[in-house]
């Protein structure tokens, strides 16, 4: 199909993507600036990366963040996948509406409210704040995202595949393990990735639920940023941007290539 691509389209795309990417490009460029003054270019240098590597506080915070993200995203994936199956395949059960409401509500809930309410809960039950409470908080909101990703895959899943497995002698659990799970695995993995990045990014909820000994990277960055632009933060941001974009781009390339290969094989099969 031919689509009419006009000058207007080209211009709006150029300006649109420039707007989306220019700030980040500038950030990356200035992370290699020799000068402490972030707006004046004084030559190329990687010294801020070195500073960053020697900054114990940042490294500690990075380690806490990683731990929290790994544990909470894994927990969220398990719970979120269970919730998705319960919603799509669970049939009717008591309080189903409330359950689906609780799955969708955190997606639109302001972070400040989530954070505040969780903190008040932890205080009410006398739970000391630290890495553990951040993990609890992050698991709670990211399991909802996982659940939405997985349930949309499950909803489009051909029910007769499960019936075929039952017909061929599987118990319902066996059918789920050997047929459903392998097929929805890509959705579960992208759910995990989403939960992981959400946890890495979160500032507000972590601020409410962390204790004095458990500062995460976003909290650290936020307190530094409030004092103004610093080349060290630029360097840190650059590292994070590069890591995340490499991950996302290569993941999408891999899945794109798999789709292309599958299409080609299908076409070859049809041509026989």
């Amino acid at each position: 199909m031919t689509r009419r691509f006009s000058w207007f389209n080209a211009t709006s795309l150029t300006f649109g993507f420039a707007f989306l990417y220019l700030p980040m490009v500038i950030l990356i460029i200035y992370s290699f600036n020799k000068s402490k003054l972030v707006t004046v270019w004084a030559g190329f240098s990687t010294k801020w990366y070195g500073e960053l590597m020697r900054n114990e506080a940042f490294l500690d915070a990075a380690w806490v963040t990683l731990k929290v993200a790994l544990v909470s995203s894994t927990l969220a994936t398990v719970l979120g996948t269970m919730a998705a199956i319960a919603l799509v395949r669970g049939g009717r059960f008591f309080g189903r509406t409330l359950f689906s409401g609780m799955i969708y509500a955190p997606l639109v809930m302001p972070d400040v409210i989530m954070g505040l309410s969780l903190l008040l809960l932890f205080i009410a039950i006398g739970l000391e704040r630290g890495v553990f409470t951040i993990i609890l908080a992050h698991t709670t909101f990211s399991m909802c995202y996982v659940s939405v990703v997985v349930s949309s895959r499950l909803a489009s899943f051909d029910r007769s595949l499960e019936e075929a497995a039952l017909d061929l002698g599987c118990t319902p659990f066996d059918a789920f393990r050997s047929v459903t799970l392998p097929i929805i695995a890509p959705a579960v993995i992208s759910g995990w990735l989403l939960a992981f990045t959400l946890s890495l990014d979160d500032l507000v909820i972590a601020s409410f639920t962390s204790g004095p000994s458990s500062t995460t990277l976003p909290i650290k960055v936020f307190s530094a940023v409030r004092l103004g632009v610093s080349p060290e933060i630029n360097a840190l941001s650059t590292i994070l941007i590069v890591l995340v974009s490499t991950g996302v781009i290569s993941a999408s390339l891999i899945s794109k290539r798999a789709i292309i290969r599958q299409r080609r094989e299908e076409r070859a099969a049809m041509a026989q």
Partner: peptide
């Protein structure tokens, strides 16, 4: 950009 840190994207405008 959706996958990149929200805080960093906001911060990038400060400079």
């Amino acid at each position: 950009p959706f996958w990149t840190s929200f805080l960093i994207r906001v911060y990038s405008w400060m400079g």
